[in-house]
Structures are given as structure tokens and as C-alpha cells.
Design a protein around this nucleic acid. Structure first.
Lengths: 236, 236
DNA sequence: CGAGCTCAAATTGTTGACAGAATTTCGCTT
DNA sequence: AAGCGAAATTCTGTCAACAATTTGAGCTCG
């Protein structure tokens, strides 16, 4: 079972385009709702439209772009409703992830999470206004738990699909004043539950944590503009 | 429940191949692990390899086929571990689905679920040996709840991705003797909770229901053969 | 001055052909 | 006769060109 871990990367052009284009979308280089014209992208990546279209189809499955026949692709633009829906999905999946992680996570990974939270604490003390990096750090915490839960299907769904969407929208909504500190405390409690191998508690705490984040977004976008662009044909 | 409601079906060749090929896989016409050669499929569907490859990429995202560079595609063949992992994902997602459905499902849909369960009861009395159709009916119950939960992301994930996989493996493991009757009772209780708009209870009952189904599979495959074919590179 | 129509340009959908990798076949050696 | 290795075949990855649809600019007309 050659896992080609080190030797050769038998990577296809479609794979490379997928990675690069996903990065461009998630890091905000391409704006939500922006139209993606195949000739443009084709020229940009130095690739013909064949592999490009395969990459687009995969990005569509990851919900990072939306497409409609004969009209092409656009960068996804979640409405407020859809963003909150994403949090509900995360609550369900990450709750389960956390329950399983309590049973399966290794001691090394637990130690790694512990040092990660220490880093977050020092960052939080130094620069409490800028929650920018904290947000990325928050996702890092969740990411590591997902990777260590021992259920490869869960890990893939969360890390490949949903976290990319979260990263895309992380820029949009900065946390409210007290949120980063509270989030850190919640992370600490979750980690305690993992140390004690208490899956039931770990799940409850993770679900509450994500629900708090959801509430934060819900109030911040109270009378906010629905992200306008081009998600007409999302749910017919 | 064909989409594109009324006017014109702006469907592309890739779409059609996706549907047809997915049906062939899910209904067992193509065996798990079987290799899918592009020229063969190309000829079979009367389509060139371009749209075909796009369809394959989407089926890969739906986890119905696995691919590796330069080696092509194969029909997915879940190991016992992966099948149980799928049940864990379902437990999380459908629990949440059920909670939301308790808040959002319409009276008509509730009535529809009620008559569906009545049908299942009569079927169960008539032919208790053949749980074949019951299994399909079981999925139908879950399918309808997913569609009515009011969270389009959850509906899509479950109906487009996971239920297809479940249908594929429904043939493999028939239920143990008393299971169909118990499953029906569990469905009835879930429906009661939905009628009472008790989201918390509905979630708990749905999770227990899916866990029971998981246990059923786990015991049935106790010393069973790992589905052999070709899922070497699934989690590197 | 704006709404609607027409036609041209650009874009998407699709195809067939070529290059390189993987698999199979066949012959050779021991 | 069995195992190994090399050549041939098949298949995947990629590209450039053709067909069909959409977009948008310019014009006409109310």
C-alpha cells in the first residue's frame, strides 16, 4: 500500500489548479460573487480548459463556487441564512468529532493542543484588539481535533469542505469585544474533557462553543446586508 | 422529485452522465471495487471523455467512486470500519436534522410521514421476512425529514451524498430478525416528538435510532470479511 | 429619454487527437 | 514448468478546435 508519503507526488494539473484556486478564494483574493471566466483562469494558471473544468467541478462540490449551466461559475457568496446553517452543520459534526476524539486522540496530540492554547493566551494578552489571528487560531484548534478523532470520513468532511468555507468567512465577521477571551476559556474546558476521556462532556462543550460562535455572528449581522451577489440558483 | 420544476431543463451532458452512472452504482449494477474505464463508459453513454471526466470528479466528491492519478476510477468499496464511520456521521447530522425539523416541518409533511409509517406497518405485517423494501422505506423516512428540516445545507449533504452511499450498502446487510419491527416503533416515537415540536427529544430519539442500526451492522459483520477491493489509497 | 430589439463578440459545452504512464502479453532464461 | 523481464497495447492526462448558448453593445422606435 504505497502511501507515496515522501517519494513522488503523482499530482495532476487538475489537482494543482484545485489547490491554487481554492487558496485564492479562501484568502479573499477573489471576491465572493465574482464571476470566474474559464479563459481567464486558463490563462492565469497556464492550463487548458480541460483540467480547469475538472477543478471547478470539485470546487463546486466543496461549495466554494456555484455554477449554472451555460452561465459559468462564481465564487460562493453565502447569505446570512446560509452562514448560520453552516454553523448548525458544524455543531452537529464537531460535536461528534469531539466525542470520538475523547476516545481516540493520542497523548501527543493532547499535548500539542495544550501548547497551542498557551500560545493563544499569550497572543490574546499582547494584542487584544486584533482578533484576526485568533480567528485563524480558533480554526486551528478545531482542525486538529477533527484530524485526531479517528473517523476519517468526519476528518475529511470537516477539513476539506467546511473549514475552507469558514476560513473564507472568518474575515467578514470579527468577534465582538469579549468573545476571544471567552472562546479561549471554552477551548480550555473542551481540552480538559478530552484529557479526562469524557466523550459525552466533550461533545456538549463543543456544541455549546460553536453555538456561542453562531450567536455572535447572528447578532453581529442583525440588520446586516445579505451578501448580495449571485447565489440565485442555490436552492431551487 | 425531479428538480428544474417547469420550464426548460438546461441540463448538460455531464449532469446526465452523473445521474445515470450514480444510479448504476447505487443500484448495484456496477459492483463495489469494480474498475471504471473511461473508454468503456464513454461508449456506454454515447458521450466523449470530457463531460464524462467531469461527472467522475463529482462522483468522487460524493464518495461513490475512488480515484488515483494515472490509475483511474473504481466503484467505492467501504470497509467495515468506514461503514461504521458513516453511521457516526449520520448520527450527528440526522440528529441535528431532526431537531431542526421539529421546529420547521409543515403540518402536511407531518401527515405524509404518518401515512408513510402506516404503509410500513401493513407491509411489515404482510411479509415479515422480506426486509428488502422496508430498508428502502426506512431511508425514505429519513430522507423526508432531511428535506423538511429547513436547513438547505443539511438537506443537500444528506440527500445528495450520504443517502446514496447508504442505499448502496442497504443490499449488503439485511436486518436481524426483530429489527424491522423495532425500527418502526422508533420511527413512530420520533414522529411523535416532531408532532409535539420537541426538538431536543426528537434529536435524542433519532440518534438512538441510528445507533441501533449501527449496532445491528456491527454485530452482523462481527467476523465478516472486509470488503476487499481497491480502497488502498483512501486515507493516507 | 428610456425600453425593446438585433446582431456581433465572448463564453460555455463538447469533441477528437496526441503524449506519457500503467497494464497486459509474450518470449526468454534457469 | 515456473518465474522474470521487455515489448506492445491500453488507458489516463492534456490540449486545441468546433458548436451552441449567453452576454452586451448599438440602434431603432415609442
Amino acid at each position: 500500500m504505497a502511501a507515496n508519503g515522501s517519494s513522488i507526488p503523482p499530482t495532476t494539473l487538475s489537482d494543482q489548479v484545485l489547490e491554487t484556486l481554492q487558496a485564492a478564494i479562501v484568502e479573499g483574493e477573489l471576491e465572493p460573487g465574482q464571476r470566474l471566466r474559464e479563459p481567464d483562469l486558463s490563462k492565469r494558471f497556464g492550463v487548458s480548459r480541460g483540467p480547469l473544468r475538472e477543478a471547478l467541478r470539485r470546487l463546486e462540490s466543496r461549495r466554494l463556487i456555484t455554477t449554472a449551466p451555460n452561465t459559468g461559475a462564481r465564487v460562493v457568496a453565502l447569505s446570512k441564512t446560509q452562514l448560520l446553517a453552516l454553523y448548525d452543520v458544524r455543531e452537529a459534526l464537531e460535536g461528534m468529532t469531539c466525542r470520538l476524539a475523547a476516545e481516540n486522540i493520542s497523548e501527543e496530540d493532547l499535548a500539542g493542543l495544550s501548547t497551542l492554547l498557551d500560545q493563544h493566551e499569550t497572543e490574546l494578552e499582547r494584542q487584544d484588539g486584533r482578533d484576526y489571528f485568533r480567528q485563524e487560531g480558533d480554526l486551528d484548534f478545531h482542525f486538529r481535533i477533527a484530524m485526531a478523532c479517528g473517523n476519517s470520513m468526519l476528518s475529511t468532511i470537516l477539513c476539506t469542505d467546511h473549514y475552507q468555507l469558514m476560513r473564507l468567512y472568518r474575515y467578514k465577521f470579527s468577534a465582538s469585544p469579549g468573545r476571544p477571551a471567552r472562546a479561549l476559556r471554552e477551548h480550555r474546558r473542551i481540552l480538559e474533557a478530552l484529557y479526562e476521556r469524557d466523550g459525552e462532556l466533550a461533545e456538549i462543550l463543543m456544541r455549546r462553543h460553536i453555538r456561542h460562535a453562531r450567536d455572535n455572528v447572528a447578532t453581529l449581522t442583525e440588520a446586516d446586508v445579505e451578501t448580495p451577489a449571485a447565489n440565485a440558483r442555490n436552492h431551487p
